[in-house]
Design a protein around this nucleic acid. Structure first.
Lengths: 216, 216
DNA sequence: GAGCATACCTACTCGTGCGTAAGGTTACGC
DNA sequence: GCGTAACCTTACGCACGAGTAGGTATGCTC
């Protein structure tokens, strides 16, 4: 029997699709199932079924379960990073960079909610992938820290790198958390969420840049 | 054969301990193994071995794997929430409440790093527990939002509940993220991390309270 | 219109790990 | 000092799911 006329994935798939197309369908299904069940609880059978295909096809195209998960991670991760990068290069002042980066970030997350769930909720905990996930975050933190640092320098102020790092970490964490919230709230508007995040980030940062600090 | 003289858990355990003690040892081991491996990859055998006990004991005392995980969640979660609550009640001004809450939070996380890893990195993704985890965060967000709201009211300003909610979410997320960073950096000082977080949170919040907002 | 590559299937094997049955051993009350 | 309850064990059954073997259909090329 060939691939059924209508798969669960929605798009009615007729038999015999070219490899590139099927691979994308499989990745879509994999992301969906991984995000719902978690890496281990997700079964290759369910992924195959969701894609409207039989299991050996998945193995033939994307390899083992781990490799499949990595492929998901890669696709969703680069989608996100590239979208952000593309927006950031078009801006020059620090606040414009931050704003456009945030907007791109929340837009992509809003459009691919379970992709974000896989990236953020799954990869982080599961041991074989935690490293890759942490590395991606590290890069984001680095970039944000650099932006903050440049903004500081422009104002003639100097702050230790560690401080910058920690603050960047907090900002990235806040964004991730809001993204997570966004992923669970279909009614929420990505752009508005980005604005709210920008308020927290920029005003908080702005004060710090002015040399004000809070002390117990 | 009885429980070995020296278990992997460190404390040399002689045979025949009272139930309450063994249960705590098991929970310690469970948290440790769950945090290292993730829920599914962790095996009951490994947990039992780590506790220096045989598997059926774990089942006799703490029940199935899911129940065991829930028990871990419960212990670590209440430990955290109670520590924070105890600190917050002793303060009255909003910034003191926030500060003492944050300090308690980072102190507990610093002292029980893998407890945090289980709570935050594991429970969040694995379907059966995501709900409980989200609920706990929800409570935290609610409390923070309330604190912000009171601070606002004291300054005669009024903000829509949703806005408060989102900002609280961002602050909680930033804290979680720093906690996560703390869990991976044994050299870091919880109190200092709390101070840095307080700076981001309070200065950011402070500006918002003054009515300032950032606009694209 | 024969050949060949590609897309696709059904139907297995086999390891791993949850959960349990059935039976030893120690401490404590009386 | 002895029964009994609590503590603890070894050794298994069994299900589930990753990965594979081997075979069938389809369409493209010359």
């Amino acid at each position: 029997m060939l691939a059924r006329v209508t798969a669960v994935s929605g798009t009615p798939t007729f038999k015999r699709l070219p490899r590139a197309v099927r691979e994308q369908q499989m990745l879509d299904s994999a992301v969906r199932v991984f995000s719902r069940r978690g890496f281990h609880a997700a079964s290759m059978d369910e992924i195959a079924e969701d894609a409207g295909i039989s299991k050996p096809m998945v193995y033939a195209y994307l390899g083992t379960k781990e490799e499949l998960f990595v492929a998901c991670l890669q696709r969703e991760g680069t989608r996100l990073l590239e979208a952000i990068a593309a927006e950031v290069v078009g801006a020059d002042t620090p606040d414009q960079q931050l704003w456009r980066g945030l907007r791109a970030f929340f837009t992509v997350v809003g459009a691919h909610r379970d992709g974000w769930a896989v990236l953020y909720r799954q990869a982080r905990g599961q041991q074989p992938f935690a490293g890759a996930s942490a590395e991606m975050r590290e890069r984001m933190v680095e970039v944000v820290a650099m932006m903050l640092g440049r903004a500081l320098a422009a104002q003639g102020r100097e702050v230790r790198d560690t401080e910058l790092q920690v603050m960047a970490y907090a900002l990235v964490g806040a964004s991730e958390s809001l993204a997570d919230w966004l992923a669970d709230h279909p009614e929420a508007d990505p752009e508005k969420t980005a604005t709210q995040m920008m308020n927290v980030a920029w005003l908080g940062a702005g004060q710090l840049l002015q040399g004000e600090t809070w002390t117990p």
